[in-house]
């Protein structure tokens, strides 16, 4: 295990009779963006709150680089809570400096970083305004800056992209990639599956308090691709193979998606397609993240 992997083992927690987390275990590896996906109430926020120490789980263990999350370790986490958390009546730059100082950055350095982050996120012109006078999207950018002010060694972000416009989303994605490239493990939750699909190296899927899939995004999709193939024949968009052992799942302008039986050789399908015309596309059809999500949460 690498020195700065966040390991979550057997997190279990109940709210009254309702079991919110049931043996949640997964790793967040350094240098990678890990997307945390699940339906509302699946346990994402509870897991994240347990990691940062805001909530104490009934059972389970969280370690960072093999060490338990003591206060000193927790102070190196950049955390963005789901419902956000800034002082509505405090000026933007002031609160970044304050949070920076609470997290151990000295005052002058915190001021420098606050302005640099605000500029980076395109809200530096609002630095001296009181937070609640900013639009929700801009408040969100300030929130992002707040989680980065102390150059954290680990990022735990609950829905960091919600409420951001596409430009801010790109800026945010850029910041996260930058941190990951610097060797920081980044865990973030999101409902925007296409975004997670585009951005993430690793995925963790949670359903009703249980982890249903976790690992490299590409591997997870390939694992679940099964014997599904997409074939496109030039000039014949709705080409259908005359083969036994292949079921057509869908056929549209992008080609035909087939589910092959165990006994069917994919090469035979390719040959049949080539016989029908020039083949412009032939690949295993990896499930999209939404397919994957729908499948595992079924």
């Amino acid at each position: 295990m690498n020195d700065s992997t966040l390991s979550i083992r057997g997190l279990t927690h109940s709210f009254g009779d309702r079991r919110a987390l049931d043996g949640v275990s997964f790793d967040v590896r350094p240098g990678r963006l890990t997307g945390f996906i699940g339906a509302n109430g699946a346990g994402k926020t509870t897991t994240m709150r347990a990691v940062v120490g805001v909530m104490r789980p009934d059972a389970g263990e969280v370690t960072f680089g093999g060490a338990p999350l003591t206060l000193e370790v927790r102070r190196r986490i950049g955390y963005m809570p789901e419902e956000r958390g800034l002082y509505p009546k405090m000026r933007v730059a002031d609160q970044l400096v304050y949070l920076g100082r609470v997290l151990g950055v000295d005052k002058a350095e915190a001021e420098r970083r606050a302005h640099a982050l605000l500029e980076d996120l395109g809200v530096d012109d609002r630095a001296d305004d009181v937070l609640h006078t900013l639009s929700l999207g801009n408040q969100q950018r300030v929130q992002v800056a707040a989680s980065l002010i102390h150059h954290p060694d680990l990022l735990i972000l609950d829905e960091p992209f919600s409420g951001l416009d596409p430009i801010a989303m790109d800026a945010m994605a850029e910041r996260l990639r930058e941190r990951a490239a610097a060797g920081v493990p980044v865990l973030f939750s999101s409902h925007q599956l296409d975004l997670v699909e585009r951005l993430c190296d690793d995925l963790v899927l949670i359903h009703q308090g249980r982890i249903v899939a976790a690992g490299e995004a590409q591997a997870l999709r390939e694992e679940r691709a099964g014997r599904r193939y997409r074939v496109a024949v030039d000039g014949s968009p709705t080409w259908r193979p005359d083969l036994i052992g292949a079921t057509v799942l869908e056929a549209d302008a992008r080609g035909t998606v087939l589910e092959l039986d165990e006994a069917t050789d994919p090469q035979a399908v390719l040959a049949a397609a080539q016989a029908a015309g020039p083949v412009t596309h032939f690949s295993r059809a990896l499930p999209s993240l939404s397919d994957l999500f729908a499948e595992v949460t079924r």
Binding site: V52, L71, R74, R75, I77, Y79, G85, Y87, L99, V102
Partner: peptide
């Protein structure tokens, strides 16, 4: 209660006892 209501307290408590 302002810190509670605005959830700043979550960030603070993650960082100090």
């Amino acid at each position: 209660v302002e810190e509670k209501q605005s959830r700043v307290v979550e960030i603070l408590v993650a960082a100090l006892p």
